[in-house]
Design a binder for these strands. Structure first.
Ligand SMILES: [Mn+2]
Ligand SMILES: [Mn+2]
Ligand SMILES: [Zn+2]
Ligand SMILES: [Zn+2]
Lengths: 142, 142
DNA sequence: ACTGATCTTGCAACTCAGTTGCATATTCTG
DNA sequence: CAGAATATGCAACTGAGTTGCAAGATCAGT
């Protein structure tokens, strides 16, 4: 019940519409971050307008339900922020794993950012948030 | 002599042309990563073709002289990889600091990626390289 | 349930970074 | 001073994402 799309939308103050439910189901069902294109393919038959999909994803992101990750080839991937939908996007240190072979991007939980931040602070930067991006081979591809 | 643009081009097996020398001079003179647009502005008067500039930057990057960093608004910034031009792009752990106020991206030296990598390996990922992206306020803006 | 303010959807036209093809000019090795 | 290999310039193109606007759906208050 907690993870029902309609409840989640309500919880994130997003109006409950068929498009949003479908898109959210796709995102909930994916282990990796998905592009606009990926989502469109997984919703073949539903024939959702491309602009509507962009706006849906932006709404999700603005409300903190999803976050977006830039790819190497200058577009965006979207993912549910937290598997348990517990922590909001803003106060969560974040890591992404980019597979060199299949190009999939995985969201990883990471706790140990402290040392990195401390050394930056020493250099005169004030760190408010951070993202770690690891490249290599995912469990499927190695 | 070591940091003369012409020598650097030769060292990176890039043909010595006026365009390349100008672009390299701009990159060497900047503390922050620069966009295609930034470089064009700094080369007003030289009237370099936009396609040529893209191709120049790509050549630099392919040869490991520069690297490119994706921005939040889906375009690229380019920077000389290493201040001392000592280490090639591929075996260098990398950090970027994105200023929330001025949007500048700084390249930072970072040594402490080990703990992060170790925890990823435990989860079944094979880490080959990493980028850390820190957000906050740069020394100029705070 | 009905109304109405508010938000969402769909379509067309647009923007803008980056690419591709091709003809001409330049580099640099022998 | 060749001549092959590479760089440059221009025009046309690509494709992700945006904007404006009119029509449709949602949902809180009655
Ligand atoms: Mn993520
Ligand atoms: Mn850098
Ligand atoms: Zn993979
Ligand atoms: Zn700043």
């Amino acid at each position: 019940m907690k993870r029902d799309p309609r409840n989640i939308l309500q919880q994130y103050k997003l109006k409950n519409t068929p498009v949003r439910v479908s898109v959210l189901e796709v995102l909930l069902g994916s282990r990796v971050a998905l592009s606009h294109n990926d989502i469109t393919e997984r919703l073949k038959g539903k024939d959702i307008d491309k602009v509507t999909l962009y706006r849906t994803l932006n709404s999700f992101t603005e409300k903190g339900l999803t976050h977006k990750v830039p790819t190497e080839d200058r577009n965006w991937l979207y993912a549910i922020f937290d598997e348990d939908l517990l922590r909001p996007a803003t106060d969560h240190y974040h890591a992404h794993f980019v597979c060199n072979k299949c190009d999939k991007i995985y969201c990883l939980p990471v706790e140990e950012h402290q040392s990195m931040q401390n050394s930056s602070i020493k250099m005169g930067f004030k760190v408010l948030s951070s993202e770690v991006r690891l490249h290599g081979l995912c469990p499927v591809c190695q």
